[in-house]
Design a protein around this nucleic acid. Sequence first.
DNA 1: ATGGCGCCACATTGGCGA
Length: 261
Amino acid sequence: MRIVSWNVNSLKPRRDRFFRFLKTWNPDVVCLQETKSMVEDLPQEAIESAGWHLSAVGQKTYNGVALVSKLPIEVVSEGIDDFEDPQARFIMGVTGGIRIASAYVPNGKEVGSDKHEYKLKWLSALRAHLDKHEDPNADLAILGDWNCAPRDSDAKNIEKWRDSVLCHQSVRDAIQNVRKFGFTDPHEKLDPDGGVFTWWDYRSLGFPKNDGLRIDHALLSESLAKRVQTVQVDRDERKAHADLDIGKPSDHAPLVVDLDD
DNA sequence: ATGGCGCCACATTGGCGA
């Protein structure tokens, strides 16, 4: 079973790349973030014609998350329980025998800002939601853009980011609190030394210099973690490919996790 | 020391992302 997390930075300008990705990787489930689209404006018919199902929560301009799956999806959560939030950042469904969510954790902008506080509250509410509705002994996965580099080695230039809201201890603690529900990050097991990234700034030649961060993670319950074969970052998808007429890349690359069936 | 790109919208500049 192949599951993927990808922050597409708006699906509309990424449409050709998205369908190219489906064709190339043939994933079982894709967790999308930042679709930046109302649900009714997503290319549902084209996704179904290509052979996948779609479930999503959306809003105009910002946020928006989706599940794209070969098998039908039964949506179990559209947002976080007991957390009033106009921002579409979380969807969980049951598909292919697993419970899988797409999460777009708030960025937080600056340490000490209102957005930083919202980020911490969001992560705290996610943990409470899991405590209330989920079982760590089930086949459970949350894939997404966590807007956090958990280890210093998850940044090419940690000194540049150490005091940022992506590496701040408060955020790392809040992420760890979610993980303590019963998740492991297979990437960290397979790449103990770090240095593999999923996001590169559009500016400053971030990608050519590999000046990136690992902020997209697949969190798996123990039963799923045992099934992990490989974790890959599709760096090719982050390239410009000016010759292919498929548009510009997202600033995030897809994270691809293969599980034993 | 900072911005540098890309996307979006009551657009032709400003907000946001990370």
